[in-house]
Simulated scan of single mutants.
Amino acid sequence: MTVIVRDLRPDVPADTEGFARVRALALPYILFTPESVRHTATRIHPDARYRPLVAVQDGEVIGTAQVHLVHDSPDPGQGCLNVYVRPDRTRRGAGRLLVRAAEEYLTAQGATKLFAWALDEPANRAFAERRGYTQGRSGHFLRLDLANGTLPPLLDVPPDVELRTAADFAADPRPLFELDAETMLDEPSDVTSEFTDYDAWIAENWRHPLLDRDLTTVACVGGRPAAFTVVYTDGGARYSTAMTGTARAHRGRGLAKLAKVHSLHRARAAGVTEAFTGNDTGNDPMIAINKWLGYEICATEVRYVRELG
């Protein structure tokens, strides 16, 4: 039967479940649930012009695309499309149709430069390059087996540092927003983003259904957040690091390492068996921390860029 591409319907469980299933099969290193798919579709900032697409064949979702403008960048005209097809449903035209629909939409929204992630595999790279995309940065996915592996011992907490959780900031999360905004500026990326809208951050990030406020760990100095590791969990036994960073004034003390090892110990005690994280391949300090924690590289992805005429 023919493959068709259409908009995701966030209020239809079959769509959000199908979207999450495709992403879990094609990219198992990032947590997706139907609730998180629905949240992103309905809570992302309207200036992003976010348009999630699905490729459907015989009533089954076999491919997905996340399509949006980088609205929070100081550089205008940037768009992103991330396309994934079920590994057992490839070579049916779904990827090609999704890319075409995404590019047409972003072009109509004024995008002049497109960014797309692709797993570092020959077929994926060839697919991107045939469509005029050139290689940019790359990043690793890393996995930690908490069920059978070992964690380093807990690090001592310095006298002037207090470890807290995101749940401790429930009444006023603005200090976490400020730390997130500062550390985001130094995140290695082809795309520059800035967090400047507190209300949007609350809607998209603080209220994200996968955010685990009890395992998200914050190192505070003088009562203020100085470093943190932001944790997503899927309601089961899987854990993912969404962000780890340290305020510039407090770098060099190992506070991110401290927060992360304490979070992982508590996660294992809570029954988490598998943890994932991701690193830009040029981020040597964070790669070193993750290797010390016991993470191993399980996949690599490449960011591809296309300039529109």
Rank of each mutant, 00 (worst) to 15 (best):
L119E: 08
E104G: 09
L106M: 02
E103G: 06
D88E: 05
T107F: 00
R86I: 04
A111V: 11
P122V: 08
A116C: 13
E103K: 10
T134P: 02
E121S: 03
E103H: 09
E104D: 13
E104N: 14
Y105M: 03
Y133L: 01
T112F: 12
R96E: 15
K113D: 10
T107W: 07
R91A: 13
E129A: 01
R130N: 14
F115E: 01
F115Q: 01
A123K: 08
T107L: 05
G110H: 07
Q109F: 09
P122C: 06
Y133P: 03
E129H: 04
G110W: 14
A116V: 10
R89Y: 07
Y84P: 04
G110S: 11
G93R: 11
L97Q: 15
L114G: 07
Q109N: 02
T90H: 02
Y84R: 10
E121G: 01
R86N: 13
T112L: 13
A116G: 10
D120V: 02
R89I: 03
L119A: 11
G132Q: 09
Y133N: 04
P122K: 06
E121K: 07
A123G: 11
N124C: 15
Y133E: 01
E103V: 15
G93H: 09
P87N: 08
R96K: 15
P122Y: 07
L106S: 00
A94M: 02
R125Y: 08
L97N: 09
A126N: 03
R96M: 07
F115M: 00
A118D: 03
V85S: 12
D120W: 02
L98R: 03
R96D: 14
L97P: 02
G110F: 12
L114M: 05
G132K: 13
A111L: 12
F115W: 05
G132M: 04
G110E: 06
A101M: 02
P122R: 08
V85K: 01
L97F: 05
E104H: 04
R96P: 05
E103D: 12
F127L: 09
L98H: 09
A118G: 06
R100L: 09
L97T: 10
L98N: 04
K113F: 09
A126I: 05
Q109E: 08
W117D: 13
W117C: 08
G110L: 11
G93V: 12
R86K: 12
P87Q: 12
Y105C: 04
G93F: 10
E104L: 00
